[in-house]
């Protein structure tokens, strides 16, 4: 049995849930194992009805007022009850802030393996080999889990394609009653949108984004010069903002802005997953990086493998000349 722990907010399933289900459907087919989706929440029958239409075998719904908001204590307790009644082979969770907030606790409390950030898997005989990204996505690692199942895995965002999710099933919906005895130690006080600031990159047609490869704050002027010559907006990777070279509002990525311009320049940006999720749907991506193995080249359309301090000023000059003519 393969379990997917779904993630939802405001009564909507997150896209990572579809990706995790694709992962589950594929492993399920290869290993001849049925797939169960688990929904924890309060008043979530609508989500169960939606999941029922996917090509899976069962939807387990556990509703409880305490599950209305995500809480690691409640999730761990509920999932221990649910999984304890079953014989799970693999339990898949999204590699998201929420997934990575409870999956490691669950793995420790059951003393079973958790492979975080999976991007692929293999079937070797009847053994499951999970592949995950390591060293800032520069390398992959194939891992062999030890001992008895269940095994836990988190699915890296973007590794499995949500549009490959097969529907056409008629899964059985099973309601499970959960009771809690432990405390809720962590309590939600409030959830707010981070201050947006003056820079809104969401509508920018062209963005020139700089990363740690620029080395220091003063060097960022070459990014601004290129942007000016192009009539473009400036963006940045997270370390640029953390080092206070630019304010937070310039940040592109999972904890910054999500952008999709027609043209995106990634200058001295390695292409960590948290950056990629914020810009990979851009129509045309240009990467300028001296390291040919940098993962940014995986999503780029055009790449120049060279010193950015030579390439960027050369580009600026050409665009300036174009403007004049």
């Amino acid at each position: 049995m393969i379990f997917v722990i779904t993630e939802h907010r405001d009564n909507k399933l997150k896209s990572i849930t579809s990706e995790a289900l694709v992962f589950a459907q594929r492993v399920g087919q290869d290993f001849g194992q049925p797939v169960t989706a688990v929904v924890l929440g309060a008043n979530v029958s609508g989500l169960a009805d939606e999941l029922k239409t996917k090509k899976i075998d069962r939807v387990i719904v556990a509703e409880h007022p305490d599950l209305a908001e995500y809480s690691p204590d409640r999730y761990v307790e509920a999932l221990k009850t649910i999984l304890g009644n079953e014989k799970p082979f693999l339990v898949i969770v999204g590699h998201t802030t929420q997934g990575m907030d409870f999956a490691p606790r669950l793995s420790v409390s059951l003393r079973r393996p958790l492979i975080a950030g999976c991007v692929e898997y293999e079937k070797q005989g009847d053994r499951l080999i999970l592949t995950r990204q390591v060293f800032n996505a520069k390398m992959n690692m194939k891992t062999g889990v030890r001992g008895e199942s269940p095994y836990f895995a988190t699915a890296s965002p973007g590794a499995f394609q949500a549009d490959e999710l097969q529907s056409g099933g008629n899964a059985e919906i099973v309601s499970v009653a959960v009771q809690f005895s432990g405390p809720v130690r962590r309590k939600l006080v409030e959830r707010v949108e981070a201050p947006r600031g003056m820079v809104d990159l969401s509508a920018a047609p062209i963005i020139v984004a700089g990363g740690r490869g620029l080395k220091e704050k003063d060097n960022f002027k070459i990014v601004f010069e290129l942007a000016e010559a192009l009539g473009a907006s400036v963006g940045a990777s997270r370390p640029v903002v953390d080092s206070e070279w630019l304010p937070r509002e310039y940040q592109v990525g999972s904890s910054g802005q999500t952008v999709s311009p027609k043209l995106y320049f990634a200058v001295g940006i390695s292409g960590a997953i948290q950056h990629l999720v914020g810009m990979q749907t851009s129509r045309c991506i240009v990467a300028i990086n001296k390291d040919v193995e940098a993962p940014i080249f995986k999503v780029a359309h055009y790449g120049i493998v060279d010193d950015l301090f030579k390439v960027v000023p050369a580009l600026t000059k050409i665009f300036k000349d174009l403007k004049v003519s």
Binding site: I115, N140, M141, K142, P295, F297, K298, H301
Partner: peptide, 17 residues
């Protein structure tokens, strides 16, 4: 809880030119 079978540089299924 697990053993490392192999560390490798993934082949990039990329469209990059």
């Amino acid at each position: 809880m697990y053993e490392v079978k192999e560390v490798f540089v993934p082949e990039r299924k990329s469209r990059v030119e």
